[in-house]
Nucleic acid binder design. Structure first.
Lengths: 168, 168
DNA sequence: ATTTAATTGTTGACATGTCATTTAATTACA
DNA sequence: TGTAATTAAATGACATGTCAACAATTAAAT
């Protein structure tokens, strides 16, 4: 639509004002889009009786295999703080989707593993999740998805960008 | 062996597999980046005694001016469902940052307006918020920010993209 | 070796988000 | 007119996220 015009306008003025507005718009767009993605994905997993966060925990534990992972290691792989993970695991354990056991060598740690029931649920969601993702990104080409990944990664790690983008 | 069949299978795998992974990676990156943005912004507004969501409500009400907005109209402009907004406004009203009054012509509606104290807080956060945004997007050029806005918008409204991108 | 510090995980308190239901007011319609 | 449907907002119940404080265990220090 008017994107090129907007960009030209910004170059013309080249002051802080429209630059700020673009960044503000980008920030809002980021939050709104992520919220929509989270909501759509929730509607996919909730029929299985789990939340998006619980699904993520189960995915991580499936990837960890039989030896499982200590509690805080799961929290580290999510985007989450400690206290939340305990209660998440409480729920999953109550549903029989996760097992917890104190580590013998370091009794501070609690190792968590996925159960057969838990794995069955995650496995059954693999294909629907793939389709859901495909649906969500249907508006973007493969190259654009890669561009999006690049831009988002550079927002989270702005320092690492210096090496790859000196040619500006 | 059936070489053509094998080749076809490989092509299929090569097509779908990395594509799916890219979309999956993009989805995760989207959620993580938005979460980080939300968290960083929270550390900016929480010293003023308000949350990010409360800040957004105050911003919307400042923009609405003196006549204010009905409760659900605020909810519609946020990325939020009804029930949450009532309690958000409860907190803001308790802090004296927002006023609520039943509409005379339609007594179902409750009009919300920002108070002078509320406006003072939002105003005092304008400049810090601008700097914070600038800091968050420092890894991207202005053109890249526009690209990001475009990609995110097309994720939320995939249909509108069809007209502009038939040339693929 | 005994005290101190750090790590791992849990709990309590509270803010927010969501769903289902409810109340009050308004509109539709028969 | 009078009853049903719709709308605006609030409430209850519950899941999650965050902070502060805590207990248990292990590591470090002197």
């Amino acid at each position: 639509m008017e994107r090129p015009a907007i960009r030209r306008l910004q170059q013309e003025i080249q002051q802080t004002k429209p630059f700020v507005n673009s960044q503000h718009a980008a920030g809002l767009s980021l939050l709104r889009t992520a919220d929509q993605a989270r909501r759509e994905f929730d509607s996919l997993v909730s029929p299985m009786g789990i939340s998006v966060e619980q699904y993520n925990v189960l995915r991580i534990l499936r990837g960890a295999g039989e030896k499982g992972l200590p509690t805080l290691e799961i929290a580290a792989r999510l985007l989450e703080q400690n206290p939340g993970i305990t209660r998440l695991l409480d729920k999953l354990e109550a549903k029989g989707l996760v097992c917890r056991a104190r580590c013998a060598t370091d009794r501070r740690q609690v190792f968590c593993t996925i159960t057969a029931d838990g794995a069955a649920i995650v496995n059954s969601l693999d294909e629907p999740a793939r389709r859901q993702n495909q649906q969500f990104f249907r508006g973007l080409s493969a190259a654009e998805v890669d561009t999006l990944i690049d831009l988002l990664d550079r927002l989270r790690y702005p320092e690492t960008k210096a090496e790859n983008e000196r040619e500006i």
